[in-house]
Design a protein around this nucleic acid. Structure first.
Lengths: 274, 274
DNA sequence: CGGACCGATACTCTGCCGGTATGGAAAGCC
DNA sequence: GGCTTTCCATACCGGCAGAGTATCGGTCCG
């Protein structure tokens, strides 16, 4: 199967409309229709049921959509990694403010060890996609918020949780809180969708802004407290989950540079050994 | 990147010779040369260093070879799974004799539950490849011999190890053995390469034959003892590893049929509940 | 130095891919 | 019920990418 055909199919399967899919692909509708027909003929399976009114996926189509997406990202990843293999620079994906104050130290140590590292900031929860897409070599994740499905990981540090709220909040003066104290509050759990703004939260700054606006209070790892602006208050949560900051990378990665980086970066939080 | 281009590159990278690669691909050499050049131009990276005498991989080429292989199998898997999604039959990969006597019971129970299962026998260690290639839905593996990297697994049973030897062997009358007793013997560990026949062992029958010939004694899970022919003897190993028979399937699999199958098959070895 | 090997280049051709125009079925509307 | 809208399929056509043949040019070897 040609990857082009598969990309066409994925577009149609996602849009469930040949016209829109063709537009998205930057082509006319008739050749797209033909390409899909040809694909179905080659596979010997009907992928879509078309009425003149609507397009639906057959079971085989559902399967091809799911598997096809991963195959296409694998393809893009191969391309991207090959392109980036030319220079030894490692790309480290992290969310803004998501470095738990470690980034500076990590970069300093890497500079000393002559490991070229380029931090790449991305939206919350996007790190894994960057790894899979080959756009990043290694990422900083926060367990259990991020789910590092089949990634290899190395723990950097373990954090308590804090509650972020406006400094004018009724609980802002407390020295610590428990979950029970948050009863009746609108609580944002850091990876939730955010109904108030109608879209996913993509950025720590966004969280801070929304907390300041009184939309909700946010539960997040303590290490974020370093970035708390003066109009917000951070109070430790006594019975919160612990949050773990880990390095994560594709388990099948065998790069020597990456191995060196992980060793050096993990050393940043290790007990000092002179 | 087109999958065709990538397949071309993988062929060249594996052969390290444009002529042979072209032959393998069923095409002439010049268009292949051009395709690779074009790929290099598009990626902006040199993938191969060509002297007029030999072709070598650059670091970027190494990366693209590794990543490209997995991308191509992902593509083939998508195609194969979509094709097979048309009928609900589940393909169960196992090595001949590798079912620990469970296959009959599993198939019987599945028939009763109206789950269509088709066993597919393959060479030793090939189960994982079949799963990745989309040619099988679920496999029987023997831990720790098979390494189910990123597969989901369900334990069926735990086995001791036995030593398989000719019935005329000096140790054949023993009721049990320890590792130390095997000192001085040529021992085959079930997944080793087999220098005596110059290739990998692909079949349990092959192992039996070679043991009968006195090439070596073989250490393998006890459940294989059911198939021991009369000219061979099987003696339990007291300090052997335990071998675990597991069901394995791609972790990302979300098929309802597969879930039912795993439940039913796992029930075969569960303590009877009336 | 001549031949073998092997990849690159030059040139030609064909088939596929994509474009435009149009058909035709189903649903909505007055 | 006919008109319009929507949306996928078919008919037809043109251009270019990809494949083939012939040949060149560099390198190793005897």
């Amino acid at each position: 199967m040609e990857s082009r055909e598969l990309a066409y199919f994925v577009a149609v399967a996602e849009e469930l409309n040949f016209g829109r899919a063709a537009e998205r692909l930057g082509m006319a509708q008739p050749p797209l229709s033909r390409a899909i027909q040809q694909l179905e003929r080659r596979l010997g399976v009907r992928l879509l049921t078309r009425t003149s009114r609507r397009v639906e996926l057959t079971p085989a189509g559902e399967v091809l959509l799911a598997e096809g997406r991963t195959a296409l990202t694998a393809l893009a990843a191969a391309e991207e990694r090959a392109r980036r293999a030319a220079d030894p620079k490692l790309v480290l994906a992290l969310k803004p403010g998501g470095d738990a104050g470690l980034l500076e130290k990590i970069l300093a140590r890497c500079a000393a060890e002559e490991i070229a590292v380029e931090p790449r900031f991305c939206a919350i929860g996007e790190q894994e996609g960057l790894l899979r897409g080959g756009e990043a070599d290694v990422a900083l994740l926060h367990l259990p918020y991020d789910e590092p499905a089949d990634l290899a990981t190395e723990v950097l540090l373990v954090d308590r949780e804090i509650v972020l709220m406006p400094s004018t909040h009724r609980l802002a003066d407390r020295t610590e809180l428990s979950r029970a104290d948050l009863d009746g509050e609108e609580v944002f759990e850091w990876t939730d969708e955010c109904p108030a703004v109608g879209g996913p939260i993509r950025d720590t700054g966004q969280v801070g802004t929304l907390v300041a606006l009184g939309q909700f209070v946010a539960v997040m790892p303590e290490s974020f407290a370093e970035y708390v602006p003066p109009n917000l208050a951070a109070v430790p949560l006594t019975d919160g989950n612990t949050s773990t900051v880990v390095l994560a990378w594709p388990a099948e990665s065998r790069s020597r540079e990456l191995a060196r980086f992980v060793r050096v970066a993990a050393g940043v939080t290790a007990p000092a050994a002179t």
